[in-house]
Design a protein around this nucleic acid. Sequence first.
DNA 1: GCGTCCGATGTAATCGATTCCACGCGTCAC
DNA 2: GTGACGCGTGGAATCGATTACATCGGACGC
Lengths: 352, 352
Amino acid sequence: MASIKDVAAEAGVSVATVSRVLNDHPSVSADARTRVLSAVETLGYRPNAVARSLRTDQTHTLGLVISDVMNPYFTELARSVEEAARALGYSVIIGNADERPDLQDHHVRNLLDRRIDGLLVSPTDGGSPLMLDAARGGTPMVFVDRWIPGVDVPVVRADGLEAVRDLVAHLHGLGHRRLAIIAGPAATTTGQERVAAFREALGAYGLDLPDVYIGQGDFQADSGRRVTEGFLALPEPPEVVFAADNLMALGALDAIRARGLRVPDDIALAAFDDIRWFVHTDPPITAIAQPTGELGRAAVRALVDRIEGRPPESVTLPARLVVRRSCGEPAPPEPPPAQSPAVRSPVRRSQT
Amino acid sequence: MASIKDVAAEAGVSVATVSRVLNDHPSVSADARTRVLSAVETLGYRPNAVARSLRTDQTHTLGLVISDVMNPYFTELARSVEEAARALGYSVIIGNADERPDLQDHHVRNLLDRRIDGLLVSPTDGGSPLMLDAARGGTPMVFVDRWIPGVDVPVVRADGLEAVRDLVAHLHGLGHRRLAIIAGPAATTTGQERVAAFREALGAYGLDLPDVYIGQGDFQADSGRRVTEGFLALPEPPEVVFAADNLMALGALDAIRARGLRVPDDIALAAFDDIRWFVHTDPPITAIAQPTGELGRAAVRALVDRIEGRPPESVTLPARLVVRRSCGEPAPPEPPPAQSPAVRSPVRRSQT
DNA sequence: GCGTCCGATGTAATCGATTCCACGCGTCAC
DNA sequence: GTGACGCGTGGAATCGATTACATCGGACGC
C-alpha cells in the first residue's frame, strides 16, 4: 500500500507538503497541490488512519456498547447512532454485550484500547470497576437508555412513567385487576424503573403488585417464557402479563401458546418497546413505544458535545402507549403504516 | 494515559523490556517481569492499540459490511460473526449499507483506511470500482450471503434451491397455481437466485412465472407493500405471494391487511428467511430458514484462514423449509420452542 | 585460564502520518 | 538600498509501540 512517502516522491515534494495538501492547509502553491493530487490519484493513495490517529491522538470514532443487538430496540438505536455519528464525521464501533457484564467489560476495554474519542453505553449491570474507572477517567462518555446512578455522566433516555400510567388506565378500564410484570434485571435502571412505574400506576387504582406477580427476567426471550410459565401455574394466575421488553414478550407468547391459551381471552399481554411485528402478531400487541431514533441522535449529540469541549446535555424523552388488541377489545383502528412512525413529542431537557 | 515509557520508568527498565514482558517474549528475567507487571498494575497501563497496529501492520480487526442491520437475518449474521471472530482473537467493525451502494462504498473505504486485517462483505450491488479494487487488491476478503460473480473471492452462503422446491411442492399440494414473487434487486445474487429457483421449481409442475407475477422489490418492507398492492390490483391476482426476504414479507402483510384480506384464505404468503416472530404472526408464516449462525462462523473461518495464510474454503450450506399456516391448512405441529432452532444439516464444501 | 555461547538487557530504527521550526526568496516600506 | 515581512517549502521531531542489533556477564567446555 502506498504511503505518504511514495506520494511525496512521485510528486517531487516533501512529505510535509503532501500532508499539507491532504489536510488542506492554506500555504501550499497551486502547482504543488496539483502535482500532489495527481500523484495521489495515480498511486491510489489513501492516508493510513492508524498512523494519523497515533499522531493526532484522535480516532474520529465513537464506541457504542449495547446490551443486546438481537433486540430490535437496540438494533434500531445502533442504527440511528451510526447515522447521526456519520453526519458529524464520526464512525461507530459497536460492542454487543448480550446482557453479559463480562462481555460488556471486554468491549469497553477493547474500545478504550483502540482510543476511541468517546463512548456511548447502555449498561448491562450496575457498573463494573472498569466501567466506573472509564467514567471517572478522561474518556468522554454518555449513557443511553440505561444508566448507572451516582456516576457523573450525561444520560439520554426515555421516560416511560406517563405511558405506563396510560397502560394501566387502559387495562383497568378493560376490567383487569390482577396484573403481573416480567421485570428486567434489578441491576439495570430500566429493570427497576419499569417495575416501579407499574407499581405506582397500579397504586393510583388501589391495586397492588404482590411479589408473586413480579417475575424476574433478564430481557431475553427465554426468561419471558420461564416467568410466564410460572405465572400460569399459579393458583390464581394474573389476568395481564406486562413484559418489560419485547423479547420477553415473545417468550411470554411462546409460553401462553404452549399452554394452549389465547390472548387476550385467557390472558392479556402488553410489552415495553414497540416493534413493527407487533402489528401483525396474533393478536396485535399493545406496547409502549420509545422514540428510538431521537434517542440515538440526542445521545450522539451529547457525546460529540463532550468530545468537542461543549457542555453536554442529559435528555429525557417521553415514551407513549400504542393500544392494540392484546389486552382485550375494543381494538382501536391502527393508523395506516407510515414510512416511519411519526413520533413527535415534546422534549424535556435538563442540564448536567 | 500512561504509555510504555511511563511503565519503563516506573519499573526501572527499558521500554524494550516492557514490550517483551507484554508480548511474553521468553528472554526476560523473572525479576524484571514482576517489576514490569507491578508497574503496569499501579499505573493502570493499557497498551495503545493504535501504536501497536502501526508498528506491526496488523489490527486484529475484521470488517463486516452488511446490507441492512435492521433485517433480523443480518443482525443475527453479524452477531454470529462477532462471536466467532472474538473466539479467534479478532474484533469486528460493522458497516451497515442500508441497501445503498454509496453507503456500502463509504464503509468499505472507511474500513480499508483503518487497515482492517480482512473484510467480510454481503454486497448490496454488482460491485463498485472500489469494491472490485479491494477484492483484487491485497485485502483478504470473503463474501457472505451475497457475492459478486467473476471476482475471485471465497463465498459463504446458503443454497435455497432445494428448500424452494419443497416450498413449491407444498404450495402445489395445497392447490395453488398462480404464484407470485416479490424479488430482491437484480443487482444482488440473492435477488436473482431466488427468482430463478422459484421459476425452476414452478417449471417442474408445468407452471410458469409470468412477468406480472414478478414484483421488483429492494429487500425493504416498503417495497414489499408496494409490490403486493400491485399484485392485489391485478385483474387476476396471485393466490400466493412469496417474499424474497422477511422485511418484504412484513410489507406484504401490511398491504394485505390494509385491503382487509385474510391470510391464507384470500391469499397465501411465504417468505425467504425465517425469524422468531413468524411463529406468532397471524397466521404463522411459512418460511425458508437459513443456517445463519453456521454461515457467520464459516465466513469468519474462511476469512481468518486467508489472513493467516491458509487456503480459504468457499462454503455452501442448505436452507430448509419451515411449514406453518400462511399458505393454507394443514398446519403441522410446531416443535416446542427451543433455545436455538436445532439446524443440523450436511455441509457441502467446495475448494476455491 | 581462556574462548565460546547464551540469556538478559538497552539503544535505536521503524511504522506513516502531523507539525514546529528554519530557511530562501520575493515584495514592500522607509 | 536595506530591513521586515510573509509565503512556500523541507528537515526533523514526535506519537507509542515492536524488534534488530549490540553489549555485557556469567557459565561452561577444553
